[in-house]
Write a protein that binds this DNA or RNA. Sequence first.
DNA 1: AGCACGCCGACT
DNA 2: GTCGGCGTGCTC
Length: 806
Amino acid sequence: MSNIAQVIVNIPARSIDKPFSYLIPEQLPAIDIGWRVLVPFGSRKVEGFVISLEDEPTDGLKSILAVLDDYPWFNDNMLKTAEWLSRYYLCSPAEAMRLFVPGLSGIKSTKAYQAAHAIDCEQASILLAAKPAEYRTVLSYILDHGPVSQADLAKLPGSIETILKFLLQHKLIIHTDTVLKRGKASTIRLINLTVSKESAAQAEQALPPSKSAQRRLLHALIQTGELSPTELRNLHISADTVRKLTSQGLVASREVQIFRNSYNTIIHKVDEITLTTAQQQALQQIGPVLKAGIHKSFLIHGVTGSGKTQVYIKAVAEARGLNRQAIVLVPEIALTSQIVARFQAAFGQDVVVMHSKLSVGERHDAWRRLHSGQAGIVIGARSALFAPVDNLGVIILDEEHEFTYKQEDSPRYHARQVALFRARIAGAAVILGSATPSVETYHQALSGEHTLITMDKRVDNVPLPPVTVVDMREELLKGRRSVISPALTEMLAEALFRKEQAVILLNRRGYSTFVLCRECGHVLKCRHCDIALVYHTPGHSLRCHYCQERHTVPDTCPECGSRYIRYFGAGTQKVEEALNALFPTAKIIRMDQDTTTKKMAHDKILAAFAAGTYDILLGTQMVAKGHDIPNVTAVGIISADTALNLPDFRAAERTFALLTQAAGRAGRGNKAGRVVMQTYNPDHYAIVNGGMHNYQGFYENEIIFRRQLNYPPYSNLIKITVQAGDEIQVHRNANQLAAELSPVSANAATTVIGPFPASVAKVKDIFRVNILIKTKDMAEVTGHLANLNIACRKDVIIDIDPINVL
DNA sequence: AGCACGCCGACT
DNA sequence: GTCGGCGTGCTC
């Protein structure tokens, strides 16, 4: 019989990357693979995950202390996914497994201090005689009060840490460790009748009028059958009243688990929508795969407004009909409330929404609803991938090209990759959807890895809006220096005249993008980061967009002392000012990071705009996503090339996607839309094709460039970043690391580039140097990297399939 | 991550 | 001589 468990301890240290063996005590026979347990680890008690069982007897093993749940937390699919994740992304097994545990650790440990059992008071006074009085105060406090927490002791004078350490060392006190389970389920008591309604009515009659509360309670119970604590409160019935009737044997209560639900969106009624031919054709391909229960992936390339969401809903309905579960991923829950609302309208309580703003308790509830099968659909950002679904039928990635699908801290996974893996081992379908698929995904679809489904018409054949490209170089030659060109002004004026709405995109927040001394050319930079400061109008301050520090605007240039300091470049605040000057009566709302800091502020701004409270919505890329407002007929893009000039191989892809998404906001209802795009690079293929809604044209240009420079999809990338607080040190460390990588570059399929300073060489006083690996043999390189043991180094970040090479 | 063990400077 | 600084190294 297996009585030894291999346990991954949940400790966020990358150096602990192996399982530890523990004895399974006889009184805990249920322990099996996938269970969460409490184990002794060093001098502490920590949460652990059982990953396998063994029966080889080994000496010196500690025993598992307890189980944390009454069911296995991980199923086979989840364990395999975690194992793959840790191997592919070079993270520790604990890091990978923690993704599946909402709210980080499932346990909370509280330390308490109490007097040692065999305390010798005489010896104690001798020991403490030489010590300051505080030592004696602390000891007598502990003697008087029994077990006390450190928080309590902290109120006492003196440096408590040192005193406690001394007392522990001399065995005058001991400390205990109480481990509590977190995320307890919430329950409420429902009050009901224990007798028939008739006898209850008789009892009510029999009560004297003075006992009005009891009469009211009986009356209400006869009416409704069962009452919740909230309803009792509304009826002004106290717990005492309930107790009285309980003792008379008339009422009783039962405890039921409740689920916290902060996502109280108004659920709109479902209109039965007639599917378009394209939607039907898409479902004809997906349906049989779901029925057969085999893994297959689809790429739905559908123009903005082609009705992809309806296909997702029907596919999920199909999976649910087969009693299989669904995971629906959206790039950012705050920007995609419309799709969430549509799923809730279609599936009601079968949908669980997971997002980062959920509290630990809400997260647990969501988890339990899925795990217990009370809900079968989870919709959320990338973390929803790790939901406990038993019988996975389909995973949907809406807007699959979005970079938010890549997690930017360890484990640096890409949701698309994980989705494909999880679905493959579960025999489930994956549906990737986008109007502008990532170059990698589209390339895979063309080579047959995904089934390509094209939806190139908008629902009801609404035409895509015509795009006017304004060459800002020519504007400048004509002496027009305003950030808003005449073409854009004219379009806005017309839309406002017709009482239609406009969306304006400018991918830069703040007022001006840099501050320059016209005397010596000095650009004001952040003290802690190697980046230009941005001028913000509110508070008349300079802000660093990397470390958020505010600097005051200097009167004179810190380099040459000149007073000739000027602001250059335009941010959203400056455009807002310009729009106010051009259209004084128009109501303008700005949406960027500065105006959306509050919880759900996106939603509120978008809702107000959709309701017609504002005429113009101005903002950064968040205005280009998700919403579908019929009255928006004009879209203006202030500077189409903001992202184009970044030194990154995905700059063109990013630009094309943003332009296409933004342009797609116009004319989604029955009114024709228009787009004006201002640019300094009107001939660039990302902008030319963005203006023509021509994905194919863009792709054909881009793929040539990718092939020439051996970038993805023709290779896989690994970015290694070395960090240090000292500039010389960081280069020394990076060069040394590059030398260690020589066995990696020995393979002809692999090239190592760098070290070279990161595009922003210093952030928050930390210098960063990158090494880039391009390879056609990912497994070999990651194998080497694992052997070199650099993944656990604190000053090194390994990013597998990085989203940028900056 | 914690916590122990361990080897060198400033004090009663 | 002791206290205590935080540099390695281990945790079944």
